[in-house]
Amino acid sequence: MDSLSISELCGLFCCPPCPSRIAAKLAFLPPEPTYAFIPDAEPGPNAAGPTRASSLRPRSGVAVAGSAPSEGKWKLHLTERAEFQYSQRELDTIEVALAQSSRGNKIGCMYIRCAPNSRFTVLFSHGNAVDLGQMSSFYIGLGTRINCNIFSYDYSGYGVSGGKPSEKDLYADIDAAWHTLRTRYGVSPESIILYGQSIGTVPTVDLASRYECAAVVLHSPLTSGMRVAFPDTKKTYCFDAFPNIEKVSKITSPVLIIHGTEDEVIDFSHGLALFERCPKAVEPLWVEGAGHNDIELYSQYLERLRRFIGQEVTLPHA
């Protein structure tokens, strides 16, 4: 998250802006899109390459994934900037769709069948400055290693998703993703694990505070926007954005909190504070020496996730 100038700091105290402006200033960095949705004239994994029809965020594609068979509407085209590391066979496990948010934005969604026999699907809310194209390779690797399917989406203004990012849109975006996973793909709440990383913990905590699910993972979470900008903040102001600290106590599902002790973006104290406020928190994972963007490189990351999913999350009834 970018630092604020002296004048901007003074503005927050002397004339505090609305939460959406704090959110926009502190958090949102949509990257140049690394993928496009192309109309799928020939549904199925053997469909032809890019069509000449108009696309959403058109880019020069280097890899193609088929759309959901039930609609056969879109194909995913990844660009070279997506740095995809998998073959066409892996790409064929990806389905893409558009969801409509309550705020009127079309939201790009991606469903990856990493483990068809898995009982759980992870609804993943990714971090900042990335989109689904950049995350797709990580999703396939993660889902395969923890034996879960992965469903993810892009926030308003990211990737193919319409609109501009704001705090209210974050909440509407994950609602649209949740209902798409529930209705289009038929995944029940007790089979959904909500996973939020960095800014993605904001919509994850909000949704988990309103809906019961199998479990929640908060990866490098923040307590609130003001507490990131001003580390000495001790209370939640009415104009504060992203107030995870006020919502986490309402979560009724088991919660695993993961944080690096040397996080340079969201201080380790945020993870500690949320752990203390969350009655459903299980044994956390504090990764000694890890920063904000390298926790996944430590062996205890996958070990803890596997133990959480395999032993601490209640399995849905068959």
Rank of each mutant, 00 (worst) to 15 (best):
Y211I: 10
S3W: 12
D169F: 08
A27G: 10
F275S: 13
R89S: 14
P231M: 03
V287N: 08
G289R: 02
G159R: 09
G163C: 08
L98M: 06
E276D: 15
E190P: 13
D206I: 01
F239E: 07
Y171K: 13
P189Y: 02
R103T: 06
E246I: 04
K106F: 02
E71Q: 01
M1Q: 09
C10Y: 05
G289I: 06
I112T: 15
Y86S: 11
S118L: 02
D40C: 10
F275Q: 15
S7F: 09
F239V: 12
L78E: 03
A215I: 11
I251Y: 06
G162A: 07
C213W: 07
S3C: 12
R103K: 13
M226T: 14
P243L: 02
F120Q: 10
S102V: 09
I6E: 01
K168H: 13
R81V: 08
T201L: 08
R145W: 04
V187S: 05
G260W: 13
V287H: 03
V160K: 04
H317F: 11
I251A: 03
E83W: 13
R277E: 14
L56T: 11
R210Q: 15
G108I: 11
G186H: 02
G162I: 04
Y185S: 12
K25T: 09
D173N: 15
R81Y: 08
